Amino acid sequence: MASIKDEVDLLRRIPLFANVEPHRLKLLAFTSERVRFEAGQELFHQGDPGDAAYVIISGSAEVVVDTQDGELAVATLDKNAFVGEIAILCDVPRTATVRAVGQLETLKIMKDHFLRMVAEFPEMAVEIMRVLAQRLSRTTAELTEARNRLGGAAG
């Protein structure tokens, strides 16, 4: 069984939480839950309401989206990845399905606890904006690259 110190050390490795004071991470760790998933088991499904975010402790998970042609794998998440925060931050349905590739261990952070931390600790909100902006920038670059490849293939 992991100690609160182990959970704090785990959270500190996540960019989103790297600059949050240890006593604040203890509070988040105390209110979080370790959850294990077997291969193929879903953390959450596209379209579901967002009730929690997850930190991957060990193992990996795949991110898939439903398309007209079936499921499309769009990413693989590994140790220290943080997933599920968009649905809880934006109060929107899950934008993708996340499924364990093999055995997966996560730290589940419930929506209410996460939002309370963000409200009480503005430096965490700033870090969230920074991380999400980096993701948006990376996604925009990938979409531009894909568009350029498709444009080149069509010509």
Rank of each mutant, 00 (worst) to 15 (best):
K26R: 10
L27S: 09
L27A: 14
L27D: 13
L28D: 12
A29T: 00
A29Q: 00
A29D: 03
F30V: 05
F30L: 11
F30M: 15
E33C: 14
R34Y: 12
V35S: 02
V35A: 02
V35I: 11
R36I: 13
F37L: 12
F37P: 14
F37S: 01
E38S: 07
G40H: 04
G40W: 06
E42T: 03
E42Q: 07
L43Q: 08
L43R: 00
H45Q: 14
H45C: 10
Q46G: 06
Q46V: 11
Q46Y: 11
G47R: 03
D48E: 15
D48K: 01
P49V: 13
P49F: 05
A53E: 11
A53D: 03
V55P: 03
V55W: 01
I56P: 01
I57W: 09
S58E: 13
S58M: 12
S58W: 10
G59Y: 06
S60G: 08
S60M: 07
S60P: 00
E62W: 04
E62Y: 15
E62N: 07
V63T: 10
V63S: 00
V63C: 03
V63R: 00
V63K: 04
V64F: 05
V64D: 08
V65D: 12
V65A: 09
D66H: 07
T67G: 10
T67H: 11
Q68W: 10
E71T: 08
E71N: 03
A73F: 09
T76V: 13
T76R: 13
L77K: 00
D78P: 00
D78V: 08
K79F: 02
A81N: 07
A81D: 14
E85A: 14
A87W: 01
A87T: 00
A87R: 01
I88C: 00
L89M: 09
C90E: 12
C90K: 13
C90A: 13
D91C: 01
D91R: 04
D91W: 05
V92H: 10
V92R: 14
R94S: 02
R94Q: 08
T95G: 15
T95I: 06
T95E: 11
A96W: 00
T97I: 02
T97L: 05
V98G: 05
V98K: 02
V98T: 12
V98C: 02
R99Q: 15
A100V: 13
G102D: 14
Q103H: 14
Q103D: 15
E105H: 04
T106F: 02
T106V: 13
L107F: 04
L107A: 04
L107D: 03
K108A: 14
K108L: 02
M110G: 07
M110I: 10
K111H: 07
H113K: 03
F114M: 11
L115R: 10
L115W: 10
M117A: 15
M117D: 06
V118E: 07
V118K: 06
E120R: 15
E120D: 12
F121V: 08
P122T: 08
A125N: 01
A125T: 02
V126S: 09
I128G: 01
M129C: 07
M129E: 12
M129S: 06
